[in-house]
């Protein structure tokens, strides 16, 4: 389902080159639940952005469902991000001064889902992340953990086959983190492909495969059972 070959990402700011990814290759099969671990600054988010079609690699290839992403035009990429991928950002990225409900239904708005259906769906999703009573709160009136859960609900809005989550439990209390992991486990069981970045080994333990990255290179790649 996901195949990357010799992925490199080099940032170039004011003549200073930063190598964020230095030749990363792996394949993730449909229905796999993968964790990506590694120290801060090792290039995890950079990798995730490329997988999500939000950024382009400096070199290397990325195939999603057999399609090479770098060949696709901007609108086609938008469509893939909308329909195939649910992305949870490390820093949530909710629309400011906008209700939780509106944030969740935004992807459905761009997909052209009719208003009734999308409102209903958004409500259900907020319910699933335990925020049904916060639907009409504005995003800046929510705690960090609540914002993160809204971001997860939003990622699920279009029933994407692939869910990419950048530290989805990073700001959440342990008991809530378990709730989130239950959602991810259920999604995994339903056949979704999940890639998740985490720092915590006990969160990574929910997944079936752990890829560890260090200095832009894969350090280890272990599949359990």
């Amino acid at each position: 389902m996901i195949k990357v070959v010799d992925l490199k990402k080099i940032y170039c700011n004011d003549g200073v080159e930063t190598v964020a990814l230095d030749g990363v290759s792996f394949t993730i099969k449909k229905g796999e639940f993968t964790s990506i671990m590694g120290p801060s600054g090792s290039g995890k988010s950079t990798l995730m952005h490329i997988l999500g079609g939000l950024d382009t690699p400096t070199s290397g290839q990325y195939f999603l469902d057999g399609e090479e992403m770098s060949r696709l035009d901007d609108d086609h990429l938008s469509e893939i991000r909308n329909k195939k991928i649910g992305f949870v950002f490390q820093s949530y990225n909710l629309l400011p001064r906008t209700s939780a409900l509106k944030n969740v239904l935004l992807p459905m708005l761009y997909a052209g889902v009719d208003p009734q259906t999308r409102n209903h769906k958004a409500q259900i999703l907020l319910d699933q992340v335990g925020l049904s009573d916060r639907a009409n709160h504005l995003s800046n009136q929510l705690s960090g953990g609540q914002q993160q859960r809204v971001a997860i609900a939003r990622a699920l809005a279009m029933d994407p086959k692939i869910i990419l989550a950048d530290e989805p439990t990073g700001n959440i209390a342990t008991n809530q983190a378990e709730e989130i992991m239950k959602i991810f486990t259920r999604l995994h069981r339903d056949g979704h492909t999940i890639v998740m970045i985490t720092h915590e080994p006990d969160i990574a333990a929910f997944s079936s495969r752990i890829i560890t990255i260090r200095d832009g290179k894969i350090e280890s790649d272990r599949t359990s059972i």
Partner: peptide, 19 residues
């Protein structure tokens, strides 16, 4: 600045350029 971020987010969520 604020609007550029907003546009980035909308695009990330599937908005097309034209939209």
């Amino acid at each position: 600045t604020e609007r550029t971020r907003e546009i980035g987010l909308r695009k990330a969520l599937g908005a097309k350029k034209r939209t």
